[in-house]
Design a protein around this nucleic acid. Structure first.
Lengths: 342, 342
DNA sequence: ATTGTTCATGTCAGGGCTTGCATTGAGTTA
DNA sequence: TAACTCAATGCAAGCCCTGACATGAACAAT
């Protein structure tokens, strides 16, 4: 209970110093480099810190120390689960290193992403996790000028020399599409998210076309529907594709969210999966195993990707040598949603 | 391309001032109150800002201005979708008001939550969104002393006078359980998350027991399994419950994630839902409609809750009167997973 | 010509913390 | 005891920005 006029002012380092009879420098050291202070003093100071409920002023601290022990991540969406697992891993790994993670979401909007990057950096992020490589050169200039370590996840593109950890989206999708075609499917549909500003989506689409070309199918016959990422959008797009005359026997989806929506829709339309139509996803998020039938999809090592991204970024932040980009492997998780055409 | 030794130092206000031949104060005004500066000067200054790639130093700005236009949210988990939608709404609404949202996750760990609250406040959050009321008094002291506006979401408890927006978890669950019992179910199972430090989970469990008592069933006969939140954990807990001698005819779950896991498991076990066993959830997240059969669950107005939380917090931050806590309504979303016992 | 107004702009004192360097004093060695 | 270490601590200069206040020029009113 606070008494009437006791304006509850926020304690500062100086208050702590006064209360424990030392200088502010010593208090600061107690907090940041405890072993450079005698145990006796430290105890006394810590008690004062407790008693006063002192917490450092972040602004002042950042200003003086030029670091914050905070990393940031800008992801396209938090509303669906695509990045959740990797992000969680990223966060856990950082936590272990005493670093706080702040997350911002861009809603797949490049302008918004740039804004969020700036916001995070302005707030003192010592390192940044980004998704994909597709952003304005200006963003990179900004980060480089401030020497903010950053890493792109969910992509690995040997043609790009920016630091990245991920997998080859194109190749992974080619592998899956090849399997689909190998089962005998000739008429294919594809549901994708907006490909502008999304290199992963673009690469995946290319991957499908590459597989088609490779197997002697004309990539232009691929029926493509672009949409947003949500179960509902996936379902709608699927319905549209299947409403075509001579509909495809297999519909590949740019990610699991779309695919799960598609599977659900197939059920609604009275189509049997995979007898009447096969459906595949990408990402292997947990919901892929929830629909019936389970989704055949590209398994992505989310946890490893997030955790290693954290390690690499920490390494960078600590001034160690820039690590090499990491290419992770994906594999096809085979469940019930893909079968031969009948 | 940077030349050899040109250490790319970060431009400060002073650099901009020098480059444009004005004082730092004028530059500051250009950025924060453009109409108090003549157009000619402003243009010149803005050009310098562009040319130098200036961006204000957040720490210094926070230190000097004592505000940041940043709100924070600490949610228990980002790995599953329970809070995603509400959070997205919260963020959108803030964005509209020019406020940046920073998100931290506590992994359902109270100590971690406290840490995150401090981290966010230290980083200058002008307002905070929290989930539930269940936290150490110390957290509240901390927030009050710093006069940080904060609001609890996902709860409405008339017995608690802290600002909140949400629904009555207990009552909502009682309504659902009553419906289950009303259909004739007598042996009930319940899957919940850890109830320590989670008032929502606790209230929901109480809700089930209250409904039982109300309908003349002995609450102690409720078969309860506690677990973590994930599809898999839900599935496992469900299997355990059903392995009992004389298993329940209906299993209620503390949230949709658990429930979806349970439905999937039922399928695996060859149990028909709802003929052999009914299953219900709570939250009505999008995946509730993905499983087969669809999940009967308590619908929560996620979007409205998030958006209004933002409005209330903004109101508070702007020094307006403290709004009243808001009680939102829930309803039962009836899908296929609940039916009479057979 | 004098005084008063009004703007645009400049000056400068913080704001809370870290850190390089200086100081102190207890302990060691000769 | 004197000289020397070295760990513990203090001092004070920033870090970059904001905002209250001061200044001064242009113009209007008298």
């Amino acid at each position: 209970m606070l008494k009437k006029d006791e304006m509850p002012s926020i304690p500062t380092l100086e208050d702590v110093a006064r209360a424990s009879g030392v200088s502010t420098a010593t208090v600061s050291r107690c907090l940041n480099a405890p072993d450079r202070v005698s145990e006796k003093t430290r105890k006394r100071v810590m008690k004062a810190v407790q008693d006063l409920g002192y917490a450092p002023n972040f602004g002042a601290q950042a200003l003086a120390a030029k670091r914050t022990n905070t990393f940031g991540a800008v992801i396209p969406t938090i509303e669906n689960a695509i990045f959740a697992r990797g992000l969680q891993a990223f966060g856990e790994e950082l936590h272990r290193a005493g670093v706080t993670l702040l997350v911002a979401s861009s809603s797949y909007d490049p302008a918004r992403e740039e804004e969020q990057i700036r916001a995070l950096v302005a707030r003192g992020a010592d390192g940044l996790l980004l998704i994909g490589h597709d952003r304005h050169e200006r963003c990179y200039d900004f980060l480089e000028r401030r020497q903010i370590p950053h890493i792109a996840a969910w992509v690995y593109d040997s043609g790009c020399d920016r630091l990245a950890i991920g997998f080859d989206n194109r190749e992974a999708m080619t592998a899956l599409a090849s399997e689909v075609i190998g089962l005998g499917h000739r008429r294919l549909g594809y549901i994708t998210a907006e490909i502008v500003g999304n290199d992963r989506a673009r690469a995946r689409l290319e991957g499908v076309k590459a597989a088609m070309a490779e197997h002697g199918l004309d990539p232009d016959t691929l029926i493509v529907r672009g949409t947003e990422y949500s179960f509902q959008e996936g379902a709608d797009a699927f319905a549209e594709i299947m409403a075509q005359p001579n509909p495809p026997t297999a519909v590949l989806c740019g990610n699991d969210v779309l695919a799960v929506g598609a599977v659900k829709q197939a059920l609604n339309l009275g189509l049997r999966v995979p007898q009447d139509v096969s459906i595949t996803g990408f990402d292997d998020i947990s919901v892929a195993d929830i629909v019936t039938p389970g989704l055949t999809t590209v398994h992505v090592p989310h946890w490893e990707m997030g955790a290693r991204a954290a390690q690499m970024l920490l390494q960078l932040r600590n001034g160690e040598d820039r690590p090499d980009s990491v290419r992770l492997d994906t594999y096809i998780a085979r469940r019930g949603s893909l079968g031969p055409p009948s």
